[in-house]
Design a protein around this nucleic acid. Structure first.
Lengths: 206, 206
DNA sequence: AATGTACTTGACCGACGGTCGAAAAGTGTG
DNA sequence: CACACTTTTCGACCGTCGGTCAAGTACATT
């Protein structure tokens, strides 16, 4: 069993570099230097540069994802409250190291790629949990809708995409407007009480 | 004014290469060879490899986008019919050269990147047109909803993301289910007649 | 001391994106 | 045609990168 501490040291190094640099502009040697080891050692722990990035994204999500799993099973809390908590958790985790530096020398390529990787995982991992929450809301009679899984995916996709300004860049106002529209559509489409979903606008407050 | 024919030759070469290769696996020299010119000439017409890709995507969208623009102004056709035509146009154009070869040696990175670039442009360009169409539907009394632009964006995002299996990969059945959910949500949320949006399921038929 | 195993390392490799100066092709003018 | 001048072509060349690898260190186990 390899020293798992080294893995984290490498991940830390990349994360630190990523705070004000682009992935493509960061060389493997640089990561190694920041991690305080030779380049060869990196390849002892990871098969490729991409694998390091993947592992970092994985690690960054772990906490959020765990929170989501717990939320889904807390049936004593109201479904909407749990949804709110879930979105809050997402936002806190995602904005952390994904935001790009003030100096946008970046070729827009790799940023986009990074974000997308992040989003894909977020949606696919959270869908079951949100579906479960919605199902409970349906059973409670608080939500009226026939396709819980589909609803979960739709909401997640829109939220995830809109929360991340770099995928479809829009102004904050426009984002707020879209979120308001989504709320209106959800409230009308699922017969839930108007105003119940308002926390989403706060969430979008950036 | 430079010979615009050369631009297209280069774009053709890349498109052809892209049919069974990955962007990252295609070198600039290869593109040049396929285009029948020296590598230096490529850089006479384009500033970088990425610029070539961008231009290709741009070119691939031109027709679809033009169709959409025309559709928006055809007020004599029913809004829903125009929406259907718009989605059909999207699908025809997008699946064309984006689909990856049977041999998926690709590192999933650049495919994702390509698709995303495609989708981003699709959503941002089509949003105004779809908004216009929806607005007309509201005026006609066929749609009841207060946020036409938001609705357009929501629909476009979900459709675009779901139509492209590589961004959030799901089975055809699941895609159909999500689309059905979206239809149900739209029909209930905008007070339009049930069944009006059914063409979406056909569109998703892949 | 000897053997084996886990880990480290930086010189090295092939390939890539991009540059450049020189040459070739095209264009207009007398 | 000769001429100057601009546009276009080209491939050798450059720096850098991701990844490899043989040699080496550290440290148990016997």
């Amino acid at each position: 069993m390899p020293d798992s501490k080294k893995y984290d040291i490498i991940l830390d190094a990349l994360q630190q570099l990523l705070e004000d640099r682009t992935i493509q502009s960061i060389s493997v040697s640089e990561i190694a230097q920041k991690a305080g080891m030779g380049k060869g050692s990196l390849y002892y722990y990871f098969p490729s540069k991409e694998a390091i990035l993947d592992a970092l994204i994985e690690r960054s999500y772990e906490k959020t994802l765990q929170t989501a799993k717990n939320l889904a099973s807390q049936t004593d809390i109201a479904p909407f409250t749990r949804m709110a908590m879930l979105f809050q958790a997402c936002q806190n985790s995602s904005t952390a190291f994904l935001m790009q530096p003030e100096t946008p020398i970046s070729s827009a390529q790799d940023i986009a790629f990074l974000h997308q990787k992040y989003l894909t995982r977020l949606v696919s991992e959270l869908k079951p949990d949100l579906t479960e929450i919605i199902k409970q809301g349906i059973e409670n009679g608080e939500i009226h809708f026939d396709h819980p899984a589909a609803l979960a995916e739709i909401v997640l996709i829109v939220i995830a995409v809109k929360l991340d300004n770099s995928l479809f860049p829009t102004s904050p106002e426009e984002t707020a407007e879209t979120l308001k529209g989504l709320i209106a559509l959800l409230e009308k489409g699922t017969d839930i009480a108007p105003g119940t979903l308002n926390y989403l606008t706060f969430t979008a407050g950036k």
